[in-house]
Design a protein around this nucleic acid. Sequence first.
DNA 1: GCCGTTTTCGGCCCGACTGTTTTCAGTCG
Length: 577
Amino acid sequence: MNNAQIAAIFELLADLLEFQSSNPFRIRSYRNSARVISDLSESIATIVAESPQQLTKLDGIGKSLAEKCVTLVETGSLPQLDELRQKIPETVLQLLRIPGMGPKKAAVLYQELHIKSLDELKIACETGQVRKLSGFGEKTEQAILANLEFAATAGDRIYWSEADAVASDIRQFLLEGPAKLEQLELAGSYRRCKETIGDLDILIVSQEPDAVMDRFAAYPSLRDTIVRGGTKMSIRLQSGLQVDLRLVPEESFGAALQYFTGSKEHNVELRGRAKSRGLKINEWGVYRIDGEEETYIAGQTEEDVYQTLELPWIPPELRECRQEFLWAEKNNLPELLTLSEIRGDLHMHTTWTDGRASLRQMIDAAITRGLEYIAITDHSQRVTMANGLNSVRAREQWDEIDRIRPEFEGRIHILKGIECDILEKGGMDLPDDVLAEADWVLAAIHYGQKQPRQQITDRLLGAIEHPSVNAVAHPTGRLINRREAYDVDMDAVFSACKQHGKMLELNANPLRLDLHDTHCQAAVQHQIPIVINTDAHSVEGLDVMRFGILQARRAGLTSQHVANACCWSDFSAQLRA
DNA sequence: GCCGTTTTCGGCCCGACTGTTTTCAGTCG
């Protein structure tokens, strides 16, 4: 049983306990542990095998949850979970996905009307049974009917890049409205630059709140208004995306921005720290508590809020309650990587295989984007679908690069590269003598992704040990929201990269973002250089670099950790070494 | 269920909005 599976079981337990209206803090413990376990780069199974007492050293995992981890690893099941499943059919959890439907209401529906699915709920609403229940009314019944269709998709998160496009559009729409806005900022997971976004949060300071909300209500792709109060309004777009808008006073803007940026876990930690100092933090500001008296002491800027806890401002990308408080306490926050620090891009395709732009077009586009060096890395022959290069064509392409290099002398350095497949049976897709002629070799798995853990791991280790390979491309193979990562022992991959001096790619494609941020952190701990590449299949594809940068920032990476943030002379020296 | 320089019990972040209620519970973020 791997970490993701254990985390999923703890999440399910939390859902089932919530449905039973168990102690909310107990539920939170399960959710916390799920988060900690899925963020962990070490495998729980390995810890259980080697030294199970280490489990309780993990933040948020105590005696009880540690025992459950051991049981799960050793038996693959959990008696407590089986018992709960006996009592509550898992399908009733669907009810919780309806906006406005929480555990209390869902439990009443299940207990009073024996409703176990969305279909049954629809019939009960249409026949007017729901309104008769205590605590329910006609409006609730109508709201359930109106929200039922969202239940199927609720919880679906969109890519950060998509959210960014929507956010920019709404921002512009609001700024162009008649109401004067003194401040406008997007908060939430969008501001933290998470891989995927559940909804958008907008904070505004304005003297004309009604006019702002009227403008918001007139947004062209609005589908309906969910709530509208004095300071808060929520809408749903036609795409299903929810957008929350909040109006805050000037003196609260920083506190609100901090609060609504989250993460929840970061805020819980922050408020705990405030409490121990006799302070209280909410979205309106920081208050000193003196008996019954509450005195506002800060809140206009985020810096002010952190300052009251003697902490420096923490970049939003780091606010996940991982290491940021430890860094901040020592005034040792990393100087996070920026796009302008990137000097090279070492993974891109051309019309020689499945790229849409020619070799020259890609080179020109890289120059336009200010890159100092690039590697042309078309697919190898195994990727037949993409017209992958065999030995002959690979050498032809490299000869072509040799021929045109002088034209670009002094403008850009071009590496003769290849994205060479790691074959299903193990080994590289091109002969050693061919690979030895390349300047830069990426090793990648495209086939046999469903193989068992040991087989995938062995294939990767074989590639890492190969003398011509420089880096592993998209090391886990996951596609966000579409395909799970293949099952691989990342600890073994890290050790092998460290031992053989190889790099790991952070693929900047917003669908991939592979390595995961926690893997990047683990790689840094192993002193493995990260190389952030676009994997561009077109000229425009080179522009996804910025998404890779955001991922790197969330991992706490600085230019020191990233190989292609080096200038050409340092990078080429590193290659020769 | 976790945690501890208020340490083995008693806390655990906090406020807005809605609908169903006559003062508040449930939900959400």
